[in-house]
Design a protein around this nucleic acid. Structure first.
Length: 903
RNA sequence: GGGCGGAUAGCUCAGCUGGGAGAGCACAGCCCUUACAAGGCUGGGGUCACAGGUUCGAUCCCUGUUCCGCCUACCA
């Protein structure tokens, strides 16, 4: 047989590292900005340095790698920029925890030392995820790997900050913001996750100042904040209370008297008691209502930065504070309620569920907190960003996500960008102790820009991590310098990401890209699904349902894992993943492996394809598989263009397994068993290996490793060439392009008839329990001479694949006595059963089939006797159905005859 | 409260602009046939969530209902 033999089963471990090393050594992943040609570019969503590759990254990176490899093979100057995000709060938390184990406290360490520790940590662990992306096969240009805190990107951050400040789009002010008492920092609105919680609604009576016998009952879920109440609101149209507006009320537990105000936004007539306590320092609604109604309404803070009750609150009774000062808000709640009850102010308590905000990093309850922060004015930036999506200059795929984007963008609020942590880009602003002016500067300031004084100190806050991510598409390409990279690769071609960071990242990139580059950052945004477990649950460590990509890769191989993710990445659907699925595609990899092994076994070492021989000796099966190959090449290309990754995957799966392996390899066997050098054999070999080689190239973007491994073992002459030069790797070979002339529907139809005949005969064998080893006789009655001639030519296929020793074909053939019958389009097939038959079973089968077809006939007759249908439906449809009905009738007649003949 | 998506075979899902319901897995039967048992061949299995409407005809379009996800919100 052959000199070249592959191992019997595909072993991913043995090949993956080898080829990844090869590709890297050859520098294939590197994109050359001076190379010219049409470019294709993407930036990776930078994973957190703290992260390790989870299944979401794996899907995200796989899809990008498919595009990168496909585009590269298609001749584009393809760049995929990798990198990591410093992930301010997340990383600081991780390092703090690590230090805590060594009993080191952040504050004791000091800012400088702590940051040094984080860098140390980053150096040691920050590269972990990069290594994992490499195991996934990611073809990123690693020479261009960036980090959001590296020198160049930090420069971009400062440039952006200063320019926005100078344009008046960044400002500092005291506002009510979301505060995480655990991380000890401000958060932006979208960094707060809302969760439903079962709580209580407390009804508390506030006595009117001028007459203690009249009491107004307010309802609240947070009684402890009442110490910060500075008003009570009622609806201005509420007949119960409108007389009271403007009157004063005594705030229980304090000596404070506060006004009753009317506010139609704050108060819902239908809810609670119709009266609301107003705590502007600790509630967003109340803060806004205060600004709306009484700009001078005092804001009394009652919680400190750890969400504990302050020890000094204006007008609070001393005994109250002695009691609860220093207690966390939640604990204080019960104590306040107790006090109110003792003093007769608590009217009642009822169950009530409402949503509370939690920190997206540490899940602590977030407090509205009054503090000075830095903000970006968003509306001027949002408007052009809305426009480009409306105009289609940025296209979301699937389109539905555009609504999500618009909703948020049209109601956008100013972005709180300051964080009270240490790890991140320190805000380049300096406060002057002499004149209080703020100096904002690209380089570290040494004196006050206003008074020239040297008494300045830098802002201690750092920027929100997402501030630097927003610049990613251009900062990674060298901005603010005018680089060749920017001119070649910006705007990038497509961004691949998941929906949960549309606000955090996608929207902000569009805004910043438009503002600073005057051009969109990417033309398409492909939003992929979220990966869930087999039960549809979000994967999380606490649920214990996490599938570790690295474990899957170890177990089933990278290619099988990648293929699984691709196959399930249907647009707009969540991916439900389970190891069994990966196993299924591991089997696919093995199938490809063995098919290749078969091909190789049937090639001489010195084999070289012979195109001329193919022209002269091409069989029907050859034409057929070539037609199918070109047809699916077209489909795969079309699917990739439209980001229908799953369609590309299933098309290839279907073709390789069920057309190439199941049928074509079997068809080719007779020719392959001819003597060496026989023209028909050489022709078959040529087609066999050509289709394999093309299919491997089509599949390479999804399954890079196995395709390279097999491709490299193919004989020299059959590996595709690029401009006449044999490619030294499949990853730089040309991506197949369909040759439309080779797609021949009539050939596919002819082949279908052959396959139908084989299926029919197999079916008879199966149903009649004819031993597989037993050769049978088959009689075919074709409806026309043409059909008979065609089947006669293909008799070899039928004989081999259906194990038929004697095959009689003709228009005048008749049904032999006691034979099984099968009807296919254009012919009847009979198998004499003498010696092998089970009459009862066969009778059952025929009766069943007659019943089935009778039902079809009934349906169609009814349809065709409907005058409306015949008159109004398109002619072609009516004709088609009429023909079908006739076909069914003939078929039924044949079946009934067979049944009779069977006796 | 607002919005989006889903409901098709036991399971997971395809079904493009309406024209006799599909795949994979699982299941059952038969096969170690010289590429592959991680395999081959064959088979069973569905009122397309429910109720209306449009149409000659609806899994597909429209309306409503129920259930399930998710996003979003200033639900004291």
């Amino acid at each position: 047989m052959s000199e070249k033999e592959l191992p019997k089963a595909y072993d991913p471990k043995a090949v993956e590292e080898k080829w990844y090393g090869f590709w890297t050594a050859k520098n294939y992943f590197h994109a050359d900005e001076t190379a010219g040609g049409a470019s294709f570019s993407m930036v990776i969503p930078p994973p957190n340095v703290t992260g390790s590759l989870h299944i979401g990254h794996a899907l995200n990176n796989t899809l990008q790698d498919i595009l990168a490899r496909w585009m590269r093979m298609s001749g584009r100057n393809a760049l995929w920029v990798p990198g990591t995000d410093h992930a301010g709060i997340a990383t600081q938390n991780v390092v703090e925890r690590q230090l805590a184990q060594e009993h080191i406290n952040r504050d004791a360490l000091g800012r400088e030392q702590f940051i040094a520790k984080v860098w140390e940590w980053k150096k040691e662990y920050g590269g972990k995820i990069i290594g994992q992306q490499k195991r996934l096969g990611a073809s990123c240009d690693w020479e261009r790997e960036r980090f959001t805190m590296d020198e160049g990107l930090s420069r971009a951050v400062r440039e952006v900050f200063v320019r926005l400040y100078e344009e008046g789009l960044i400002y500092r002010g005291e506002r009510l913001i979301n505060w995480c008492p655990r991380c000890h920092t401000a958060l932006s609105d979208i960094e707060v996750e809302h969760e439903d919680e079962k709580g209580k609604l407390y009804h508390i009576a506030y006595p009117l100042s001028h007459d203690h016998n009249i009491r107004l009952t307010v309802a609240t879920t947070r009684p402890e904040t009442m110490l910060g109440d500075t008003a009570v609101a009622v609806h201005p149209l509420d007949p119960r209370y409108k007389e009271l507006i403007g009157k004063m009320i005594d705030l229980p537990l304090t000596t404070r008297q506060i006004p009753i105000i009317g506010d139609s936004v704050l108060v819902d007539l239908e809810f609670g008691t119709g009266a609301v306590k107003v705590t502007p320092a600790h509630d967003f609604n109340d803060y806004e209502a205060g600004q709306r109604q009484l700009p001078n309404l005092p804001r009394i803070k009652i919680l400190d930065d750890k969400a504990a009750i302050l020890s000094e609150i204006p007008d609070a009774l001393p005994d109250v504070l002695k009691h609860i000062a220093g207690k966390p808000a939640r604990k204080a709640r019960g104590m306040v309620v107790e006090l109110l009850q003792e003093q007769g102010y608590l009217i009642k308590t009822e169950d009530h569920s409402h949503s509370i905000g939690k920190c997206y990093r540490c899940k602590s309850v977030v407090e509205p907190y009054l503090s000075p922060q830095w903000f970006v004015k968003m509306q001027p930036l949002a408007e052009p960003a809305i426009k480009v999506v409306e105009e289609g200059r940025v296209r979301f795929v699937p389109k539905g996500w555009e609504n999500t984007y618009f909703d948020w963008m049209r109601n956008i609020k100013d972005w709180c960008i300051s964080r009270q942590i240490w790890w991140g880009h320190r805000i380049p602003a300096w406060y002057c102790d002499d004149c209080n002016a703020i100096t904002v500067s690209r380089s570290d300031a040494t004196s006050c820009a206003k008074c020239g004084g040297k008494n300045i100190r830098q802002e201690t806050d750092v920027l929100d991590t997402w501030f630097s991510s927003a610049l990613w598409p251009f900062s990674t390409l060298g901005w603010p310098d005018k680089t060749k990279e920017l001119s070649v690769y910006y705007p990038t071609s497509v961004l691949i990401t998941s929906f949960d960071i549309i606000f955090f990242w996608v929207a902000r990139m569009i805004m910043m890209g438009l503002h600073f580059m005057k051009e969109v950052p990417f033309k398409d945004v492909y939003i992929h699904a979220l990966v869930r477990d087999a039960e549809g649950q979000k994967m999380s460590k606490s649920k214990g349902n996490v599938i570790d990509p690295l474990v899957m890769i170890d177990q089933y191989g990278t290619d099988a894992f990648r293929f699984t993710l691709t196959a399930f990445a249907a647009q707009g659907r969540d991916v439900k993943l389970s190891p069994e699925r990966i196993e299924g595609y591991r089997n696919f990899a093995n199938k490809i492996w063995n098919a290749s092994r078969f091909v190789m076994m049937n090639l001489e070492a010195e084999f070289s394809p012979n195109a001329e021989l193919v022209v002269q000796h091409t069989s029907l099966a050859d034409h057929w598989i070539l037609s199918r190959l070109n047809s699916i090449t077209k489909d795969v290309q079309a699917a990739l263009v439209e980001y229908r990754f799953n369609d590309a995957a299933s098309t290839l799966y279907q073709f390789i397994w069920h057309e190439y392996c199941d049928w074509y390899l079997e068809f080719s066997k007779p020719a392959l068993y001819l003597d060496k050098g026989t023209p028909a054999r050489t022709a078959a070999q040529t087609v066999l290996v050509h289709v394999l080689e093309t299919a491997l190239r089509l599949l390479h973007p999804i399954m890079p490793f196995i395709t390279e491994e097999i491709w490299q073992t193919l004989p020299e002459g059959v590996r595709s060439r690029k401009s006449g030069v044999r490619s030294e790797s499949i990853m730089i070979a040309a991506y197949p392009v369909a040759d439309e002339k080779r797609i021949k529907p009539e050939i596919e139809q002819d082949m279908q008839m052959v396959m139908d005949s084989i299926l029919a005969l197999r079916n008879i064998r199966g149903e009649m329990n004819i031993a597989p080893s037993l050769q049978i006789t088959a009689v075919v009655k074709g409806e026309t001479e043409e059909i008979c001639r065609h089947l006669e030519k293909s008799a070899g296929y039928v004989k081999t694949l259906a194990r038929v020793s004697e095959l009689r074909i003709g228009v005048n053939e008749t049904k032999p006595r006691t034979s099984a019958t099968a009807v296919i389009k254009g012919a009847q097939i009979y198998v004499p059963l003498e010696g092998v038959l089970d009459l009862t079973q066969e009778r059952d089968r025929l009766q069943k089939e007659i019943a089935k077809i009778s039902k079809d006939i009934e349906v169609f007759s009814r349809k065709l006797s409907n005058r409306d249908f015949v008159d109004k439906a398109p002619k072609a449809v009516v004709e088609k159905d009429t023909a079908k009905l006739e076909e069914f009738r003939v078929k039924r007649e044949k079946l009934e005859q067979s049944l009779k003949l069977l006796g």
